[in-house]
Design a protein around this nucleic acid. Structure first.
Lengths: 266, 266
DNA sequence: ATAACATAACACCAGAAGACGATAAGAACG
DNA sequence: CGTTCTTATCGTCTTCTGGTGTTATGTTAT
């Protein structure tokens, strides 16, 4: 089983968690039948199909008669549900650390990352604030807050990321200039930040151009990894925040290459 | 769908309805104290304050120590909650009528109107479809649908309308060109469509420029009224859809002035 | 200082929505 | 033409969130 958990209670609803597990299962096995999943997860055929429909909607799997097959793992990795599963406490800690950088009245830009989402929960107290983001869950939350001027970055909706992207989004970003940018990526080497998807890279790059101070949020699971597209050198960021679980010998190399790194306490 | 008979059984949650009523009450009385409202509505002080907070967030009232005062009525009239109260069945009927114009594969633009929202509920069956809108409730719904390419029109969030607007939004609209536009307004005379708010007019005008076929959705409550800003002559629309409750002698003048009008059957 | 008002923090309740499986109808495959 | 897989529909169950009042604490005015 792929139940490698690093001690965090999933804050995910049961079906969402199961779907993430099914996704992992499918990715691992390449392709499986519905009945396999019935056995493996102990739910009815109907439920399996419903889960698979949802996963297909998110672009994680492809259904055909008799079973499902996995899509390129890049899709799986950038799947929201999957990401939400990961490193909860760490992200909260990073968010708390990042919060200190934000002064009332500032304009803040957020990308479509769960790390950024954790930050949103802290905004209520820092208000007034102007926040720009292309991440639908963040938009929904921010719309509820008083004293937060919300600037939604529109674009083409991606069910995989639950966010907006593409050219329309990049253009919307380019029309702005924020005091602060908080963003995250899927992989970080000792010199660069990486992401699998070109479209996302496009938007993130635009964001980097449209902010004065750029902050990269990195939980330890992302270090020492790479992905297809090189987003930017770490020195492009004014600050890189990592969580406390990050091994020290992984932090040093970043600093050696010129990055400014701070460690968020849990 | 909603098989409610005559009039309007509010499909609004109890608090939302009460808030709308409180808003009306405040508008009527100019300014009142929290305790007045406690008596008038038979709920606790706490609840009154919560309602008032929400109304203030929407910009409908202004709180001060000891009570609240009304804001300009234009705000009240364009308040979403208030609008949702109105002419439910009619809007559904209009939506059903409008639906016939949509072919699979088309690109459709929707404005931030409750009439347009009624239309969204019918999209699932017409898919595939490309839909562009600046209305948050519509965006939320559309994001759930498969086979709908959602293009969110970003911009500055307005709690009053629960939608995005301003210059960023107008620019996003201008970058597009949709096959169909469905929009609504707050008032319709025999020659023109009107709206109270300049910002909204700005976006709607942009939408009119960015669509091939333009359809105006009008429930009977809006006819023979005007508002501050003249949006456009009715002849700018390829079609005006009204509901069945519209008196015939109100429809004729529209046609006399050159508008194409169809009546939606309930 | 004290009264009037506003907010915060809890706990309760109800109604709604979600999740699920069973069964039956439908569609693709051989 | 039957078998296998998929989808639709319904009813049940559970879970959860929204809405509420009560009490306690904070704040502002006089």
């Amino acid at each position: 089983m792929t139940t490698d958990v690093d001690g965090d209670t999933t804050e995910l609803s049961r079906p969402a968690r199961r779907q993430a597990e099914i996704a992992a299962y499918v990715v691992k096995h390449g392709s499986v039948s519905a009945n396999d999943l019935v056995e493996a997860f102990g739910v009815s055929v109907m439920t399996v199909h419903r889960d698979l429909d949802e996963l297909e909607r998110q672009g994680v799997v492809r259904k055909y008669r008799g079973g499902v097959s996995a899509q390129p793992t890049s899709v799986f990795e950038s799947n929201v549900a999957y990401r939400l599963n990961t490193a909860h406490a760490e992200k909260a800690a990073i968010a708390r650390h990042a919060r200190a950088m934000i002064e009332p009245g500032m304009s803040v830009m957020l990308d479509d990352s769960t790390s950024a989402l954790a930050l949103v929960d802290l905004f209520e107290d820092i208000a007034p604030l102007t926040v720009a983001t292309n991440f639908l869950p963040a938009i929904t939350k921010l719309a509820q807050l008083r004293d937060v001027t919300l600037l939604a970055l529109g674009g083409i909706y991606s069910a995989t990321h639950d966010s907006f992207g593409g050219m329309p989004c990049a253009e919307a970003v380019e029309a702005l200039h924020a005091d602060l940018l908080f963003c995250s990526v899927s992989a970080v080497s000792s010199t660069h930040a990486f992401h699998q998807e070109e479209e996302i890279v496009l938007v993130k790059r635009a964001m980097l151009r449209s902010a004065r101070t750029k902050v990269l949020l990195v939980d330890h699971a992302k270090l020492q990894r790479t992905a297809l597209h090189r987003l930017a050198p770490l020195t492009d960021f004014d600050l890189v925040i990592v969580d406390e679980k990050t091994p020290k010998d992984l932090i040093e190399p970043l600093r050696d290459h010129g990055a400014t790194v701070e460690v968020a306490k849990l």
